[in-house]
Design a protein around this nucleic acid. Structure first.
Lengths: 221, 221
DNA sequence: GTTAATATTTAGACGAATCTAAAAATTATT
DNA sequence: AATAATTTTTAGATTCGTCTAAATATTAAC
């Protein structure tokens, strides 16, 4: 049985592995968990002892199949709970992360199975992130960040790669949400800011900082 | 901030106080929590330090107003989650206790408020136990246990005072559930077993052990 | 290829929650 | 009222997760 804390380490390692495609470093994990490198080393020993991670001193960490199973299941639970909070309890997408962070540690397979069904077996969470299935498989989607598009290209917002509530609230103000359709009107070369026409009606200029965090699906016609 | 463990102690003390109308003893708490008396003493010191309980060595424990607030809020959360599990996820009433035991520790006031609304502000949980309001007030209901009724008395099942899954499954088999109407046909004096006519159709004999755990509301006509 | 900078691990300590065994206090019994 | 039985508390140890400070290993810089 894994503890709350152990689970958070596994999830952190998973995320770092996923993002960097490299073994997670002690410091990287420490930063992700907001703890000291010494604490991380201690925990890595315990997790290696339990055979949840592959760990060699000074070499970085990856997950064993068992560890990976636990991590993806946590992500599955986290994202399903987020769907519940938004779709059923009418929370806004920027409010749900912290609550789901606790709910994901509830240990009951039948609960998650029933929740999944109750929600209609959603494939994506309120931020557009894919929900892995019970076997830990993620659906892959054809997507790029908005800053990769060129002028006249049309697209739809399918996700965000930043979950900070300030960022999401900014999108709320602009009425940009998942499913929003747009066309690229213009790209300013010196600061990479991008002008888009939203829903065929409203023109909005977004900074590069924003556009690179918007995940879009191109529409070809 | 109270820990998971501290919260369980507060809830145990609340339950014992409520049931016995006396300060909770160290041994009583130990039994309720399934731990040693020594551990209980340790924890009582901590809780007293935090002013969550009134504790004098060898004298037993009661909750301070703050402690009481926390305990009733846990019960509120537990029972609301049970309603969710049964009404929305279609769990059966004997399956939900353990899951709710974990869910009750999730700390988010807005979550509970929204959950309450989503469920239609239920007053009772799936076992017929009252759900305290946000101020910790319990609704009191006119009820007796079935073994207190006399012959020809009619009633409706409004609750159970035993939550063990074996007991609840036994009731499932007999198709006895909350709202089931009945009339007392007969009481056997030597073993206090009781014969009732359920839904005007089926006659069932219940042992005293069972009948004293069924909470009923009398119907006067 | 040394030296300097950075990353990682070890050492030692601490708090929370638990345990067993022993001591002390309370309650019950004769 | 004295002894026996029970309950409660203390003492001391253990595990989990954390910390700071110091030591060691790795990587980067000159």
């Amino acid at each position: 049985m894994t503890s709350f804390t152990e689970e958070n380490y596994l999830k952190a390692i998973f995320k770092i592995n996923e993002k960097t495609s490299k073994p997670a470093s002690t410091n990287g994990i420490a930063q992700q968990i907001s703890t000291s490198a010494a604490s991380v080393t201690d925990m890595l020993k315990r997790l290696a002892e339990k055979e949840l991670i592959n760990y060699e001193k000074y070499k970085g960490v990856t997950l064993t199949p068992t560890g990976n199973k636990i991590a993806t299941n946590l992500i599955r639970k986290h994202r399903l709970w987020e769907v519940f909070l938004v779709n059923k309890l009418n929370f806004s997408w920027e409010q749900v992360h912290d609550i789901a962070e606790d709910l994901e540690h509830i240990k009951s397979d039948s609960l998650i199975q029933r929740l999944d069904n109750y929600l209609g077996n959603p494939r994506f969470d309120p931020h557009g992130d894919p929900i892995p299935n019970a076997e830990g498989k993620f659906m892959i989607r054809n997507q790029t960040s908005l800053d990769q598009l060129s002028i006249k290209q049309k697209g739809v917002l399918v996700g965000v790669s930043q979950h900070q509530s300030e960022f999401l609230q900014y999108l709320n103000e602009l009425e940009i949400k998942l499913g929003t359709a747009f066309e690229v009107l213009n790209i300013t070369s010196f600061d990479k800011s991008i002008k888009i026409r939203k829903d065929d009606t409203i023109d909005i200029t977004l900074s590069h900082e924003v556009s690179k965090n918007l995940l879009v699906k191109k529409i070809n016609e």
